[in-house]
Design a protein around this nucleic acid. Structure first.
Lengths: 229, 229
DNA sequence: CAGGCATTTTGGACTGGGTCAATTCTTCAT
DNA sequence: ATGAAGAATTGACCCAGTCCAAAATGCCTG
């Protein structure tokens, strides 16, 4: 719930107007997060113990777990509020537009505003996070868990509600395809950032890739089906 | 490599002809596995410690980790030799057949032989495993990790090799779509089994669903793109 | 059949993630 | 002020997973 650190977007109510307690909480969370990312970036995720992070943030180990349920959440937590987003986008789409179009446009818009969730963002801290994800199997695993049963079912339910002529199977398959293409695109953007590209420079290519990728989902892999090349 | 328990298919050379040592190893592995699944099914994955499993299998804790690298592998290990399978299937497909067709036929064949990896199998132990996966978030996470960057890249490389006219993006997207549809179908089969259906009875429906799902991947989600219903 | 070799098994000690009951501190109503 | 309520914090604890030296077991040769 709380806004832990500099990464969260959201309704940015000004910090100074909050009761003292809330402000301290935010500061502590931010201090823990920055200490963690700093140490991780320096020595690697597995080579840093939570106790060290606690010491660096001048807090007890327990307090770290109070703010972040697991060690992995220190890296991934910020990006993981978005589980129900695809379903919401489809539900709230403009009347007359298709579900696929809604998700495509939503992703393109996120790219343009350099939303860290798209992977197209060269903020130093975001870069550290991306590097960590790629260097640590456990983190990579959880990062792809956007392709989760919950997420897929949420989206499938939404698709079925909106297009009631489709059966459950088609909806689930469609939901899976849509979540998968999103992950693929994010992965591609991560690679750009890891290669040192600036987010601004990479934007045109990223937009183009996204459009083409969604087109593949819309029109099928037919080409791979036409027999040997 | 070793054949741990009753689940593994593979080149079933008769056990009795093996050197005594190998036989004991198989027996021990199987004893540990069955003890673990039994206790997990009874009290839940998180409510059983590795020490208890070791005691139940009359083995030391160390030996458990000798046979299964992690506690999760006690449940998932058996089904996880298959990471590179999609890439292999595409690589070794009959000349003239498409990549999509190869993967579809491979999955259909696996369904017909009730391969546990398809989720369509009502062996009591397999059922326990399926129940555990659905009841334990950590296991569910790893079970969907077939949608892994490694797996996706392996398959994408294979697709690009075979159809060199396609660029990297299309190959990665296609690989993602193909892995995703596989996971979706497996999930559907799990639901059937959890609902108490017999694998034999569910087979026709499962085959039909698989065919339709792969058709969606081949021809696209177009319908969801046609605007509001 | 004896005994040496290689591999497995074992017990124990240790690290580090994660949880719990109790303690301390902040805030607020009287 | 003061005492109650509630939150932040803490130290003690449990368990997964690793490391090591020693004991046990199957295997092979003399």
């Amino acid at each position: 719930m709380a806004i832990h650190h500099g990464l969260d977007l959201g309704p940015d109510r000004d910090l100074d107007a909050l009761p003292l307690r809330e402000r301290k909480k935010i500061q502590t969370g931010s201090r823990i997060f920055r200490a963690a990312i700093g140490l991780f970036a320096e020595r690697g995720f597995d080579q840093v113990s939570v106790a060290e992070i606690a010491a660096a943030a001048e807090v007890s180990k327990m307090t770290v777990f109070n703010y972040f349920p697991t060690k992995e959440d220190l890296v991934l937590g910020p990006m993981e509020q978005h589980l129900d987003e695809p379903a919401r986008v489809v539900r709230e789409r403009a009347p007359g537009s298709s579900a696929v179009a809604a998700l495509r446009e939503h992703f393109l818009a996120a790219l343009e505003r350099r939303d860290p969730a798209t992977g197209l963002n060269d903020d130093p801290v975001v870069l550290d996070v991306i590097r960590l994800i790629h260097a640590t199997p456990a983190l990579a695993l959880r990062a792809t868990s956007a392709f989760d049963r919950r997420a897929q079912n949420l989206l499938a339910d939404e698709l079925r509600t909106q297009d009631p002529d489709h059966d459950g199977l088609t909806a689930k398959v469609a939901a899976g395809q849509l979540l998968a293409v999103r992950l693929t695109l994010i992965g591609g953007n991560h690679l750009r950032m890891l290669a040192g590209e600036r987010a601004g420079d990479a934007l045109p290519d990223a937009l183009d890739e996204a459009r083409r990728a969604f087109a593949v989902v819309e029109h099928g892999l037919g080409a791979y089906c036409a027999g040997a090349a």
